[in-house]
C-alpha cells in the first residue's frame, strides 16, 4: 500500500495511504476467519473420508468395541469448559486486566492440555489392543480425523503459551489484543469441530 519511492524533486518518501481502513484491525481478523473457513474444508474432507470408510472394519474392532463413551464425555466437557474460560479471558482483556486475563488463559491452556493427554491415553489404549491406523479403513480414517483435531488443539496450546508470554512482557497492547482475538476464534472453532467429532464418530460409532 505504501509508495516508498520519493517523487522527483522530493527528498523524503511520500506516503499515499490517506483514507481510514474499513476495519480498524487492518483486516487481520477477517483474514483469519478466511483461514478458518479453509481449515473447515480440511475437516470436511476428513469427515467425508470417515463417512465413507467408517464402517469398513476388515474383521477388526469396531467403534462399539473400542470407544469408551465416559472418557469421551469427560473430554467433551473439558473442551467445552475451556471455551467458556477463554471467553472469560476475553472479557478480562476488554477490562484491560492483565493479571486476570493471564489466569483465565492459563486455566484454558490446562484444560486443553488435559484434553490432549486424555486423547493420547485413549490412542495408546487402542494401540495396545492392536487397533492401529493400518488395521482397517475405519481405523485409518478415525486416526486421520481425530488426530488432525488433536494436532490443532496442540498447536493452539503452543500459541496460547506464546501469547501468555507476550501479554506478560508487553501487556494488553493493541497487537496482543488482536492476536488474542485470532486465537479466540481458533479455539472456539476447534470446539465446533469437536461437536462434529463426538456426534459423528464417537456417538454414532458406539451404536450397533
Amino acid at each position: 500500500m505504501h509508495e516508498m519511492t520519493p517523487p522527483p524533486g522530493a527528498k523524503a518518501p511520500v506516503f499515499y495511504e490517506q483514507e481510514d481502513h474499513a476495519h480498524g484491525d487492518g483486516g487481520t481478523l477477517f483474514g483469519f476467519w478466511l483461514y478458518l473457513m479453509g481449515d473447515c474444508l480440511i475437516f470436511a474432507v476428513l469427515f467425508a473420508t470417515y463417512g465413507v470408510l467408517g464402517r469398513n472394519y476388515a474383521a477388526g474392532p469396531s467403534g462399539a468395541d473400542l470407544f469408551d463413551l465416559r472418557l469421551v464425555a469427560l473430554n467433551t466437557s473439558l473442551l467445552l469448559l475451556s471455551s467458556i474460560t477463554y471467553g472469560f479471558a476475553m472479557l478480562e482483556m476488554g477490562q484491560q486486566n492483565v493479571r486476570k486475563t493471564l489466569i483465565w488463559l492459563a486455566v484454558t491452556g490446562l484444560l486443553g492440555a488435559t484434553f490432549v493427554s486424555l486423547e493420547l491415553y485413549e490412542f495408546a489404549h487402542m494401540f495396545r489392543e492392536g487397533a492401529t491406523p493400518q488395521r482397517s479403513a475405519f481405523l485409518s480414517s478415525f486416526f486421520a480425523l481425530v488426530g488432525t483435531h488433536g494436532l490443532h488443539v496442540t498447536v493452539g496450546i503452543v500459541w496460547l503459551v506464546t501469547l501468555m508470554v507476550q501479554v506478560r512482557r508487553f501487556g494488553l497492547i493493541e497487537d496482543n489484543q488482536r492476536r488474542l482475538m485470532c486465537l479466540s476464534m481458533f479455539w472456539h472453532f476447534l470446539d465446533v469441530v469437536w461437536i462434529g467429532v463426538f456426534t459423528f464418530v464417537y456417538l454414532m460409532g458406539s451404536m450397533r
Binding site: 473447515c40 474444508l41 470436511a44 474432507v45 469427515f47 467425508a48 473420508t49 463417512g51 465413507v52
Partner: peptide
C-alpha cells in the same frame, strides 16, 4: 462446499 463434499462423497 462442506455440504457438497460430505453429501457428494457419501
Amino acid at each position: 462446499l462442506v455440504v457438497i463434499t460430505l453429501a457428494g462423497s457419501i
